[in-house]
Design a binder for these strands. Structure first.
Lengths: 216, 216
DNA sequence: ACCGCGTGGAGGTCAAGATCGGCGTGCTTC
DNA sequence: GAAGCACGCCGATCTTGACCTCCACGCGGT
């Protein structure tokens, strides 16, 4: 989605007025660029205002403070990842396809076509010690882990704690590998990467003894 | 190892002198507690000095600045994790046992008997945007990933990029699952957790088509 | 002309990293 | 025994970045 950021400073010039909702979107876009590039702590409201081509009081007209601005962006990203994961899980009853879908959701989340790097707000936040941030990041992780644990438990004879451990391992693998893949500038195609990881993880899951089977 | 922190403030009292090297160790112990609990940004040098029972100038006598103090701790943790992983890999030629060893190294790293939580400096740093910090964290990750990729490549017919992707997935799974396991207060024993994850990951790896085999 | 709205130049406030200038103790030397 | 030195230490303060706010401006609609 093309943001308003780049065009505003040049086309609108300083002091150019926007309707309130357009301005808010524009501020969010500018803030996202600065937070993604610098992290929360090294991002100054001055920098964000400058990037947006406005003065600082304008930021405070739309957001109570720096943290709220950050949380607004975080919420958007959390919602996007959560929705993608839910959609992947809901799309099929086949457990292997579900794993494939979740992996794809993670890879697509880090590699959105606009290349905005907003995944870092979720996966690489430097504000993880803030309760509001931690709550949001953990909520997405928890939601995904629980749903995948349902899948794992359904396909193995494992109890819930074991299923949750493996589910956490799976989502951890997805998150870290997707970020590595992007950082290494996509050494293999996303499709191949997802298929490879699905193979790794599904072979592992599907070869667990099922309910009632003797361990081998 | 019992630190000097707790005893110094009560037994030595304010202004109590220590030899330079003993003081440095004590300052590091105090700093670690504060950085682990609060993260880099929310940890103040005042807090660290107070925890150590000294004044702030004493910190600056031993460390050029806050960042250098943090890096000293980070280096120690990076060295410990790296050494544990190398030891696990060197202990056997059996690839499955190597995976087991690496997983164990991660779980033991997060769950050291002193419960100091120092793993957070590596796995949950809020200073990841600082070049010096990022370099150290990535060096450990890279070292582990390369070594495990050697194992993966040795046991599958995968090319290097594919092996590195799976290796990253494996170490990502280990890191995230070990932290979850600790945060959930060890819902299953460490041994069971490691065995379960080894099963997941090893079944996945060992069932890849080998060199020259047709894909099935 | 007035009002509402969106806006900005300037600055207040303060937390926190870092430093200044000096203190006190114990040992050595005369 | 006194003086000097080395070492480890600290109260007070400086400096500065950055969050947030004050107070007024300008434009467009009525």
């Amino acid at each position: 989605m093309s943001s308003l950021v780049g065009t505003d400073s040049s086309e609108l010039g300083r002091g150019a007025r926007l309707p309130r909702s357009a301005r808010r979107k524009q501020l969010l876009a500018a803030a996202q660029q600065v937070f993604v590039a610098n992290g929360y702590h090294a991002a100054a409201m001055d920098d964000i205002a400058e990037r947006a081509g406005v003065s600082k009081p304008v930021l405070y007209q739309h957001f109570p403070g720096k943290l709220e601005l950050y949380l607004a962006l975080l919420d958007t990203q959390a919602e996007m990842l959560g929705a993608a994961v839910n959609e992947a899980l809901a799309a099929t009853d086949d457990n292997r396809a579900r794993i494939h879908g979740v992996l794809t959701a993670y890879f697509e989340f880090v590699d959105r076509s606009d290349g905005d790097g907003a995944f870092r707000l979720i996966f690489e936040t430097d504000l993880g010690n803030d309760p509001a941030v931690r709550e949001r990041v953990e909520a997405v992780a928890q939601q995904t882990m629980q749903a995948v644990a349902d899948t794992v438990a359904g396909d193995t004879g494992l109890d819930r704690a074991q299923a949750e451990l493996l589910s956490t391992a799976l989502t951890g693998a997805a998150q870290v590998a997707a970020r590595w893949w992007l950082a290494e500038d996509r050494p293999i195609s996303q499709e191949d990467a997802v298929r490879l990881m699905e193979s790794l993880l599904w072979r592992g899951i599907s070869n667990f003894p099922r309910q009632g089977e003797a361990g081998h």
